[in-house]
Amino acid sequence: MDLKEIKAVIDLMTKNGLSEFELEKPEFKIRVRRGADGEVTAAPVVYSAPAPAPVAPTVSPAAANAVASLAASASAAKDPALKQILSPMVGTFYRSPSPDSSAYVEVGQEVNEDTVVCIIEAMKVMNEIKAEMKGVIVEVLAQSNKPVEFGKPLFAIKPL
């Protein structure tokens, strides 16, 4: 499945008001979910196929977001050994405890089960998220100070 087909799926979902689409085949599995606010987001995607070639389709902003986050997941999942840390809740993603302090984790940093990797804030509740596994941070998949959906990949991690 390439990005054009994914875009076609999203367009069909938008047109028909579908909120979720899931497809599983031997070599890949994809799930696309549209949030309650109409925004389209990609849920955790596991690829074993090579990453699709990037395309530059003209799409609506919502669909563009979805494609961008699919692409991000795909690039982080080039290596089948990589895992992702997913957002356990809807909220705002913060990479550091305050704007002036350094990030909890950087790319290349080794983490363990108890390492705090970020904060997700919802309604002034600051939720510390732990890595829950031993590994090295390979990529940051979400933008600090921006909203994240449930299940959104936050970090790609290479397990040790």
Partner: peptide
């Protein structure tokens, strides 16, 4: 009020 939480992916450890 400032609430700080430590959580596993599924469960709240403490608040």
């Amino acid at each position: 009020i400032l609430t700080e939480v430590q959580a596993d992916p599924e469960a709240i450890r403490f608040a």
